[in-house]
Design a binder for these strands. Structure first.
Lengths: 151, 151
DNA sequence: ATTGGTGCAAATCCTTTGCAATAGC
DNA sequence: GCTATTGCAAAGGATTTGCACCAAT
């Protein structure tokens, strides 16, 4: 059986956005950056820096933790990933940048996506539809305060 | 000038809820627990464990960090405080248990309350009324997932 | 008198830093 | 060749652990 690959199924074709963004900033396109982004996208969901680190070291053995952290933060900065603080020890890096939020199971620690806009009422309804019983909502706004805006 | 104190202005009178809750669980009423709760309430807003630690050590010199952490988590467990992960290094412990959320200034790190229910749209409006320009909303639901519920 | 709580020191976990070596441009 | 990136080792900050002692019940 022949599997027809669409262009985006070929990893190299998916890197264009990263390459373009880096070039636009005068930053370098390195194999670490490409491999880390590919790994994050291959997984398709939030992952810890450590998970990415171990996976990437199979493709690119010498890779270090500082590089993984720096690169993941760079991807966030470029808008290719989101950083999520789910209140567990480690931060999560998510290749899905569309509006969606997260629910954390207190018992098993599993973290699942909840799609939908930021209406918390609707979000709770969706979560419940996925069988998740939420009893706590943590909402944090990030931005710039009045004082800093005028300084 | 004579200042008339209402009963709740006398620290000892505010401890009743903690004492009652501890007794109901068969847990001990210790001076550390009382002093830590009083300090959190005296401040009236979210504080880090470290801030509480330093303040408490003035009243009760020998107090240790493990005790402060354990006690703050106990207060959360008893429903007398909330634990907030604002995505900065340290967790915050908040004596305000009513529904309210937080906004974090990316520049100065200041964390302010945003009162109101969990309708994110209304919350963003309130934040904007307080001069805060929010460009990122982080919402995490905590609870129990479908799998764990049936196990 | 019991044993839950505490203090101390040390460990752990996640993340960042300093600096020399390397690899993109 | 220039200098941004990298790897290594080590530091850093927040929180937790192990264990002997103390103090609330």
């Amino acid at each position: 059986m022949v599997v027809h690959q669409r262009p985006t199924d070929v990893p190299e074709h998916r890197d264009q956005d990263l390459i373009t963004l880096l070039r636009a900033r005068g930053q370098r396109v390195t194999s670490q950056r490409l491999v880390i982004l590919r790994e994050l996208r291959r997984r398709g969901r939030h992952a810890t820096a450590e998970e990415i680190y171990h996976a990437v070291r199979r493709d690119l053995p010498g890779t270090s933790t500082p590089t993984v952290y720096a690169t993941l933060d760079l991807l966030v900065d470029l808008g290719l990933a989101r950083k999520i603080d789910a209140g567990l020890g480690a931060s999560l890096y998510d290749p899905r940048t569309e509006p969606h939020q997260h629910m954390v199971c207190r018992r098993c620690g599993r973290i699942e996506d909840v799609d939908g806009e930021l209406d918390a009422r609707a979000l709770l309804r969706t979560a419940s539809g996925q069988g998740f019983t939420a009893d706590r909502v943590e909402l944090v706004l990030h931005g710039v305060c009045a004082t800093c805006l005028t300084t």
